[in-house]
Amino acid sequence: MSSIYLFNIASQRSHWLAVRQETVTGNIAHANTPGYAARDVQPFEAVLQSSHLAMATSDPAHVADTTPGPERVEATEEDDWQTYDSGNTVSIEKELVKAGEVNSAFALNNSVVKTFHRMLLASAKG
């Protein structure tokens, strides 16, 4: 039986979410520190792209995926948030939005893992 990578990916995403939440809380903690620049982590999609996962087949006669991948699109997000006179770039509102995104992503990640786990248990029971 081949390995199932979903649990590994979910574990990596949970770790990434924990690091992002830690970064957000650090930004909030330094909201009044003069000259502090707000930080964020690399998007998880970039982390996932660097792992080079490929689709595995159990039989050479299986049809390979020949569809072209999505075109690379670069999006720029303008930062409309305020920089204070002290040089501090932390915006509490922006950090709270990020914390909400982390919370939603963590809930979704856990739901996917629980559903996949139930599916594996159901298939094992027969």
Rank of each mutant, 00 (worst) to 15 (best):
I28R: 11
I28Q: 09
I28K: 02
A29I: 08
A29V: 04
A31W: 04
A31R: 13
N32T: 12
P34Q: 10
P34K: 10
Y36R: 13
Y36T: 01
Y36D: 01
A37R: 14
A37S: 06
A37M: 10
R39T: 09
R39K: 15
Q42R: 15
F44L: 09
E45K: 14
E45Y: 12
A46G: 08
V47W: 15
V47D: 14
L48F: 10
L48W: 02
L48D: 00
L48K: 05
Q49G: 04
S50N: 10
S51W: 06
S51A: 14
S51M: 13
H52I: 06
L53T: 02
A54D: 01
M55G: 08
A56W: 05
T57A: 06
S58K: 10
S58V: 12
D59Q: 04
P60Q: 01
A61S: 15
A61K: 06
A61Q: 12
A61H: 07
H62Q: 13
H62Y: 05
H62P: 00
H62E: 14
V63L: 11
A64W: 09
A64E: 07
D65H: 00
D65N: 06
T67L: 12
T67P: 00
P68M: 12
G69H: 01
P70N: 14
E71V: 10
E71R: 07
R72L: 13
R72Q: 12
E74T: 15
E74V: 15
E74H: 09
T76H: 04
E78Y: 07
E78F: 00
D79F: 00
D79E: 03
Q82C: 05
Q82F: 10
T83S: 11
T83C: 03
Y84H: 13
Y84F: 15
S86T: 13
G87W: 08
G87I: 01
N88G: 01
T89I: 08
S91I: 02
S91P: 03
